[in-house]
Design a protein around this nucleic acid. Sequence first.
DNA 1: TATATAAATAACCACTGGTCATTTATAGCT
DNA 2: AGCTATAAATGACCAGTGGTTATTTATATA
Lengths: 220, 220
Amino acid sequence: MPSVVAINQRARSNEQKALRRQAVLTAAETYFLEVGFEAFSMAQLAKKTGLVKGTLYLYFKTREALFLTLYEQSLIRWSEVFISHLSGDMTSKAYAQMLYTTAMADGAFIPLLIRLEHVIEHNVAIASLIESKRVFQRQVAAIAAPTSTSLSLNAAQATEVVKTMGVLLIGATRSDQGPALDNEALPEDIQDLIGSFASEPLFVKNAVRIIEGIRAETGI
Amino acid sequence: MPSVVAINQRARSNEQKALRRQAVLTAAETYFLEVGFEAFSMAQLAKKTGLVKGTLYLYFKTREALFLTLYEQSLIRWSEVFISHLSGDMTSKAYAQMLYTTAMADGAFIPLLIRLEHVIEHNVAIASLIESKRVFQRQVAAIAAPTSTSLSLNAAQATEVVKTMGVLLIGATRSDQGPALDNEALPEDIQDLIGSFASEPLFVKNAVRIIEGIRAETGI
DNA sequence: TATATAAATAACCACTGGTCATTTATAGCT
DNA sequence: AGCTATAAATGACCAGTGGTTATTTATATA
């Protein structure tokens, strides 16, 4: 009764099935990091896993269901890293910078987050969607607690900061999602324009403005 | 020499071709508003225009090239409406509210804006991309000028406000892009969560924080 | 060792965006 | 008025997509 499922073996126990499912997810994440969301094909993923396309649909109802799971995992993973980097007393700038750095360091998190509502949530069972929202809610709470002490905010303020940071992160990192125009054949004015949307300062500066704005609203 | 191109006629002059191209764009926008980005198919669009799929590719190199043009047109259209609603002296809240309202009123603008970098720009000739960025730059400048007087900011601050508002708008309207779960069969905690991301207050509140943050940085 | 079960398969489906050799409307010339 | 060169329009075609399902087959159990 092997607990590891080799290729060409069948996953029969629940444990084996969970293992195979996770193996698919791991392969999917690697493949996703290679080719991105749009070029990601289920047939290719099947080849990478050594399974066949139809088998993948035994483990995930749709392509988007797979991505939703990938998103949940990356959200949890990033949250834990971010929380572990929060310290007792931080400036809003240090906090924002740490949030940005840890989020960017997780290659899958932002690209998945960015496509959540537009694409991923549109081809998923409602039950999965609800489950995903609950995971989100739980992670917001998990981050809000240390945020409250790090930034000396009350609980409601900390929760608002966390939620708002997510919103800002999505907007600010948009420029990183454009095509890779590695060749600097772009005219200078366009390079300047793109440069003025560099995601890191865009995020950090506005995160600070928002956090300080929330803090200032204390007594009102 | 008719200047209007009827169906089953051929567009030969440049003027006729431009007209037909615009007719395709108009049909595309209507169709887009009906079915959204993901369900939009070139074959269906062909049927709606009375042309044939291959003919569409005479006017647009790719599906995304069509969407890029639609985006440019909606950007210009919205800019003009927004500018026309700016007055000499506005609170940052009134300004933000007007920006949000006019942007939402244009059904195509935000859904296209949101997909610009992730999808649209990835299947378009570099020349078109550059052209599109120039249109963007021009509209930012066109909005920044009245913004400067409306909010009593200097030119650099006004430009930063305009650019940052775009970033925030994308993040804040994300929740509107989720699947239409009209049925209130959602559990209450999920409804509350979704409610806490209502795009309008999310945008307006944080826009004010950012504008006031930028204003406060004047003397530094 | 035989059998029931369900995991895995492979052929299949309708569809997609995009291409291109062929057809044909028509502007301009004789 | 009729001819011809041009290029707009067509439709058949392509490789690929996400997803389905009847069939095969590995394997736990009796």
